[in-house]
Simulated scan of single mutants.
Amino acid sequence: MRLEILNSGYRPATKALFAVIRIFSGQSLPDAAKLVFYRPDFYGTHAKTFTHEAMRGPSAWSVGDRELMAAYVSKVNNSAFCIGAHTATAGQAYQDDAKVGAVLADLDSAPIEEGLRATLRMLGKLTREGTVTADDMREVLSAGVTRQQVEDALAVCAAFDTTNRLADTFGFELLSPEGFASGAKFLLKRGYR
């Protein structure tokens, strides 16, 4: 159920900012951005900080890898808005839409390195079942992924399990392909701040 608050529940200065963004970008502000502006003290500020650190903080995973993780977790959660947003962003980050599409279509045959494949498989299980085992972790580590990379991937999963649920709860409107591409360009330039 889409809440009207996402359309109108902002202070005049925030509404003016939205109008300026629309003028310069040619696109309406996506609902994901609107949500962080609504009651920033309760959710937005904390969510932006956590998500930015998970997605753009120091990590052995590339930005493309982390955006692919976000897209994959979103696919497992069947969150249409987040699948579109992070598929576009991962494709731009890698400069390879086909690679991203292959992973989302069939993880086992996708042309990616084994460490990333094992990590995505583990994130998928965690997202579907809410738990992973020591054997799942040993499989990821044996594929050459470091403990720090596992922690970094788990942070991405936590951020997008939360965001996916909010997107679906608030009924985020799907963007056009041009809208997702524009949003991806913004995310690659500015991150999640």
Rank of each mutant, 00 (worst) to 15 (best):
V20F: 12
E113H: 14
P40V: 03
L3T: 10
R147P: 04
W61S: 00
D65V: 02
A134L: 03
A70F: 06
V20T: 15
A71Q: 07
T119I: 10
L29S: 08
M137V: 15
V76E: 06
R11G: 11
A32N: 10
A181E: 11
G9W: 00
S28I: 00
A118R: 14
S74C: 09
E53I: 13
Y72W: 15
G183I: 03
D135W: 03
G183C: 08
Q27F: 14
G144A: 03
G26A: 11
A159V: 04
S62E: 09
F37Y: 14
E129N: 11
A159F: 06
D108L: 08
D152H: 10
R165E: 01
M55D: 11
G44C: 08
A88K: 02
G91S: 15
F42D: 11
V76I: 15
Y94N: 03
L35F: 03
R193I: 06
A88V: 02
A93F: 11
Q95M: 13
A181I: 04
A110C: 07
F42R: 09
G130S: 04
K189A: 15
Y10F: 15
Q27G: 00
G191Y: 10
V150N: 00
L154F: 13
E151S: 09
H46V: 11
K75C: 01
K75S: 12
I112T: 01
A80T: 09
L3C: 03
L175D: 05
E114G: 01
R56C: 15
H46M: 11
R138P: 01
M122Y: 13
D161R: 15
A155H: 10
A143D: 06
D65Y: 02
M69W: 08
Y192I: 05
N7C: 10
R121Q: 10
E139L: 07
L104N: 08
A98K: 13
V150M: 07
T131D: 06
T146R: 02
L166D: 05
H86M: 05
M55V: 13
F37R: 02
V156N: 01
V63P: 05
S62Q: 04
L174V: 04
L68W: 01
M1L: 07
L154T: 09
M1G: 12
L120H: 04
A88R: 03
G57N: 08
G191I: 12
G57S: 09
G57L: 09
S28T: 04
F180L: 02
A13N: 14
G144C: 04
L17G: 06
T89Q: 04
D96I: 02
A93D: 08
P111Y: 03
Y94C: 01
A155E: 07
D152Q: 07
N78V: 05
V103R: 11
R117D: 07
L68E: 01
V76G: 07
A32L: 12
A80H: 05
H46R: 15
K189D: 10
N164E: 00
G26I: 06
P40S: 03
I21W: 12
H52K: 09
I112F: 02
L68R: 02
V63E: 12
G171E: 00
L187T: 11
F37T: 00
N77H: 12
S62D: 03
K75Y: 05
A159D: 04
H86G: 02
A54L: 13
G124D: 09
